[in-house]
Simulated assay, not measured.
Amino acid sequence: MSGGKTKKRVTMMDVAKAAGCSQATVSVVLNNVTDIKISSDLRVRVLDVAHKLGYGLASPIRRAGLEDIRGGCIGFIVDQLATTPEAVNAIEGARHASWENDVTILVAQTQGRAENERKAVARLLQAGVQGIVYMSIFTRRVSLDAVFDDLSVPLVLLNCYTSDNRFPAVVPDEMTGGRTATTSLIKKGHTRIATIVGESFMEAAQDRLAGYRTALAEAGLNYDDALVAEGNWTPTSGFEATQKLLSLREPPTAIFCQNDKMAMGCFMAIGEAGLRIPQDISVVGYDDDELSRHLRPQLTTLELPHRPMGAWAIEELAKKSRSGHRSLHKVVCTFIARGSISRKSA
């Protein structure tokens, strides 16, 4: 095991902060949007910062092999675009992995309907795509339509996988993420740690809970059903679950919320109870939703890795991968320390 530290991935927010502008401005500059008026000095500053930080044109995402698809097209099939930012983030990661090679990404939304998927495949192939990325908005096992079995171009699965692993696939490492979130609280001296789970039928909720249990076991702490509260990813469910947890005879000193929206509700319930974050109770979220930076204190959370997952998918297509048994590739969810956790008070 190497003794060196893993280099932190540079984000668009890092570029915006260093350049003294908004993320929207950084996006406009790096996407070379010309119909929005931005001063030449600001454009130069953003590009200079992006290069210096290793984002965009100087990004470590770039790999050898993408030259093989230079000037071509990649098809991106996704069931939903509008419900959450994950699809957009994945497409953004794919775009950054290919932008130096003049690769066009064509996106089709199918709403999970097989008929729409067949039409999308036909039209993408007609457009001359050199590979297809198939994405599910929720991490899950998928049963692909027969149209994907005999494609003339390589296929990569993003945020989903098949039972036989016959296609390259990439998903977030949710179990490790849940373990990391819980361990961060254990390291602060907390021993009575609650968690608010998402909808139990979803793999993300199951794996994050498994990670929570693993962290407790590794620390020699007993798992307690009373400290596991049901939620459904919404702020309201986080608020109601936190109220139940705080009403326990021995309430928790820390709460791991399995997404940031539930954490927002958790913040509200803690405030209504007259308690302070993190002095009285620590809170960790998950997803690194935009709202996590606007809560006070800012929310400690884990970042869903959809951008690097999108980049990985493009790299796999550049290898011209074809059918065959393949292992499932998991990408780590980065821990982002902010102000919502502290050492357990005596």
Rank of each mutant, 00 (worst) to 15 (best):
G220M: 07
T110F: 03
A97D: 12
A241F: 02
G3H: 08
R43V: 02
V107W: 03
A215G: 00
L42H: 04
V46S: 04
Y212E: 07
S282W: 03
G231E: 02
I77E: 06
V142D: 07
D68T: 12
Q206T: 08
L317E: 11
C257H: 02
N159Q: 13
G198Q: 04
D68G: 13
P85H: 10
I38F: 06
K344F: 01
N101W: 05
T214E: 15
A241S: 13
L125P: 00
L221A: 06
A311S: 14
R307W: 01
Y55S: 12
G4N: 07
G178L: 04
T301C: 10
G285E: 13
N116R: 14
T214Q: 15
H325E: 13
T25W: 00
V170N: 12
R192M: 05
Y161L: 10
Q109N: 12
L53F: 02
K319V: 09
G72I: 02
K320S: 12
L317A: 08
P85C: 10
A226F: 01
V46M: 04
P278E: 03
C21E: 07
S237V: 00
A226I: 02
R123H: 08
D289F: 11
G178Q: 00
I137G: 05
S163V: 13
R326Q: 13
A181Q: 02
S282G: 11
K17P: 03
A18L: 13
S143K: 14
L291V: 15
Y55P: 04
D173F: 09
D287A: 12
D260Q: 07
A19P: 00
P278G: 04
D79W: 03
D224M: 08
V170Y: 10
N32C: 01
A311F: 05
S342N: 10
H329S: 13
L216A: 08
K187E: 15
C333S: 10
T176N: 11
M268I: 15
R192P: 01
E117N: 05
R166C: 09
R45C: 04
K52H: 08
A120F: 06
V332M: 11
T139C: 14
A90Q: 02
A181K: 02
R70C: 13
